Simulated scan of single mutants.
Amino acid sequence: MSASDTPLVAARRARLKAWIRDQHAGSRKDFVAAAAARGVQLNPTEVSNLQTGQKSFGEKKAAELESAAGMPTGYLVAALDDPAMMSHAARLDAEIIRAAILLAKRALRLAHDQDLVIERDPEVFAQALLTAMAQRERMEATRRDEPGSGDGKARPVGSAARAPKDGTVTESAARRPRKRA
C-alpha cells in the first residue's frame, strides 16, 4: 500500500489481494493465467505493482481487472461500506450453495439424482459458485432499484403519480390526465 493511497484505493489493493488469495490460492501466476483463459492478457508485474502500491490503482484499472478476473461488477470500484461487496465467505449461505451445485450439475450434464463430486471438478464448482453469487447480487440490485422495494423511499410510478399543484390527490384524479392551464 502506498502512503498516498485514499481509503478507497487502499481497499482496492486489499480486495485484489484477497481475491487472489481466495480464488487463486495466493498465486498471482494463476490469477494472470485465469485472466488469459478469459481472453485477457495481464502483465504479472503490473498486477504485483497494483497490489503493493507501486502503481496507481484508479477506477478504470479496477473495472478492467474486475472484468478480466470475473469479479462481481463493482468489487474493486464500489464504496467501502457497500454491503454487496463484502467478502464472498460472508455472503455464502445454503441457498447459494444449492444454486451452485445445480449450475455445476448442468455444466457437467449430470442427472438430477447424480452426485456432484467437487474434488473431481473444483474449477466447475468454483465458477458455478461465482455465477450463483452474481445472480443473487443482480437480483438484490434489481430489488433495491424497484419502486416499493422496502427501502423507505417513495418513487413515482408514472405521470399519474404526480400530485397536482394544490397538493390534493383523489384516486380518480390520479387516474385521469391533468389539464394544463
Rank of each mutant, 00 (worst) to 15 (best):
T6Q: 12
T6P: 13
T6A: 11
L8K: 12
V9Q: 11
A11K: 12
A11G: 07
R13A: 00
R13N: 04
R13C: 03
A14V: 05
A14D: 13
A14W: 00
R15L: 03
L16F: 02
L16H: 03
L16M: 00
A18M: 14
A18F: 12
W19Q: 09
W19L: 14
I20F: 11
I20C: 14
R21V: 14
D22E: 15
R28W: 14
R28A: 14
R28Y: 11
K29L: 13
D30S: 14
D30G: 12
V32L: 02
V32R: 01
A34E: 13
A34I: 00
A35T: 08
A37Y: 07
G39N: 13
G39I: 12
G39F: 06
V40P: 13
V40Y: 15
Q41T: 14
L42A: 03
L42V: 08
N43R: 08
P44N: 11
T45M: 08
T45W: 09
E46W: 09
Q51V: 14
Q51T: 12
T52R: 09
G53W: 06
G53N: 09
Q54D: 13
Q54P: 01
Q54E: 10
K55A: 13
K55I: 04
G58F: 05
E59N: 05
K61R: 02
A62T: 00
A63N: 02
E64T: 07
L65Y: 04
S67A: 14
S67E: 04
A68D: 00
A68V: 01
A68H: 00
A69D: 03
A69G: 15
G70W: 00
G70E: 00
M71G: 01
M71C: 11
T73R: 12
T73S: 13
G74V: 10
L76K: 05
V77C: 12
A78R: 15
A78S: 15
A79E: 15
A79T: 15
A79P: 15
A79G: 15
D81T: 15
D81L: 14
D82H: 09
D82W: 12
P83Q: 12
S87H: 08
S87Y: 08
S87G: 11
S87E: 11
H88A: 07
A89G: 08
A90V: 08
A90W: 11
A90C: 02
L92N: 07
E95W: 03
I96E: 10
I97H: 03
I97M: 06
I97C: 01
I101V: 11
L102R: 05
L102Q: 04
L103P: 00
A104V: 09
A104I: 01
A104G: 02
A104E: 04
K105N: 03
K105R: 09
K105D: 03
A107Q: 08
A107Y: 02
L108N: 05
L108G: 07
R109K: 08
R109W: 00
L110K: 04
Q114F: 06
Q114M: 10
V117I: 06
I118A: 03
I118E: 03
R120I: 04
R120E: 10
P122V: 05
P122G: 06
E123P: 05
E123H: 07
E123W: 05
E123A: 13
V124S: 02
V124L: 00
A126I: 00
Q127E: 12
